[in-house]
């Protein structure tokens, strides 16, 4: 059987064709799980987010207007699902690191040596607020106004949390490098 192209898969999903839904899932699940892992506290939660996100995709696929990239549309929906998940199971208490961070400058070439999993672990170690702001700003490319709207915080808070997230990540990178050396 000839593999379906993306348009055929989308049309099939709009008709609730289970094979097409599976094909869409296979195409995007790995990348989207990577997105979810950056927002989740643990792997189980990331899988829950992936599940909910794909349900949202299949439920709302009629609304995809084909003007932008389908991958970006799925990604945006997945991020919204992650944020809803966070809000639904709202993390009432959040630990915020306050210690002063003294770090050496980090060499860009050395930084490239880190694997994706190592970087993911560093993001995981961030306090939740920092983690979400950093994910949305640095990796997903949202601006502070959008992040403030998405997370229900002030723009200033978003800026401040991003700054602190960067400082903490630099510290984690420095620590990892010193261990390596």
């Amino acid at each position: 059987m000839q593999p379906l192209n993306l348009n055929e898969i989308i049309e099939g999903c709009q008709s609730n064709d289970r094979d097409c839904q599976k094909a869409l899932y296979d195409k995007y699940a790995a990348t989207m799980l990577g997105v979810c892992q950056r927002f989740a506290r643990h792997n189980q939660e990331a899988e829950d987010m992936l599940h909910d996100g794909f349900i949202q995709v299949f439920e709302n696929i009629d609304q995809y207007n084909r003007l932008g990239s389908f991958g970006s549309w799925v990604r945006r929906l997945m991020i919204n699902t992650c944020l809803n998940h966070i809000r639904r199971f709202s993390y009432q208490k959040e630990l915020i690191g306050i210690e002063e961070m003294q770090m050496a400058r980090v060499d860009p070439e050395v930084m490239q040596q880190f694997s994706e999993k190592e970087l993911l672990k560093m993001i995981d170690k961030l306090p939740l607020g920092y983690k979400h702001v950093f994910n949305l700003y640095a990796i997903e490319g949202y601006n502070h106004r959008e992040i403030a709207a998405m997370l229900g915080i002030e723009e200033g808070t978003s800026r401040s949390q991003l700054l602190k997230a960067r400082k903490l990540l630099k510290k984690f990178i420095s620590n990892a490098l010193s261990t390596l050396i």
């Binding site: 994706e116 993911l120 993001i123 640095a138």
Partner: peptide, 14 residues
């Protein structure tokens, strides 16, 4: 920092 994480993780496939 931003670039490092974006390059490595934006299209990361788990």
């Amino acid at each position: 920092i931003d670039r490092l994480f974006k390059e490595k993780l934006y299209n990361y496939r788990a």
